[in-house]
């Protein structure tokens, strides 16, 4: 069957730009990724549900674990790597991270600032009553 053999021809049979049938993932990388993801998820639940961490530090701990897990997903599942085929992907990712940081941190900053400069909430509540 021609379809069955579509990806098995050698590189020499292909015109430039056609697929070579290779895939960047492997069973090992998916399995390692899953193990890391499960470990980090478990750690997140543990940190949030117990007093293992100093309690004011828990949000920071959770944020670190979440960012680590996102990194694991990017590397082991999405196969974002430092390889030459991936330069554009990494640059786009960096730009995306910049925009996301600006939106989230900027919104929080602006809203906290507005909140701090507002009439105290209790006074507003008095006015509303």
């Amino acid at each position: 069957m021609a379809e069955e053999n579509a990806g098995e021809s050698t590189a020499a049979d292909k015109a430039p730009g056609t697929d070579d049938g290779s895939h960047s993932g492997s069973l090992a990388s998916y399995t390692i990724g899953l193990a890391f993801a499960l470990l980090l998820t478990g750690a997140s639940f543990l940190v949030s549900q117990t007093n293992l961490l100093w309690s004011p530090g828990v949000p920071a701990g959770l944020a670190v674990l979440a960012i680590a897990q996102m990194g694991v997903h990017l590397v082991f599942f999405l196969h974002i790597s430092t390889g030459p085929d991936n330069t554009n992907n990494v640059l786009a990712l960096a730009f995306g991270v910049l925009i996301v940081t600006l939106i989230v941190a900027g919104s929080l900053w602006i809203m906290a600032n507005l909140n701090a400069n507002m009439i105290p909430a209790s006074a507003v509540m008095e006015m509303l009553r």
């Binding site: 998820t41 940190v47 949030s48 979440a66 897990q69 996102m70 599942f77 999405l78």
Partner: peptide, 21 residues
Amino acid sequence: WHALDIIWVALLTLVYLMGAR
């Protein structure tokens, strides 16, 4: 499908784990 997982990790942490404390 993998990107949805990444979003879920952020969601789990910010909404559920931090919210349930």
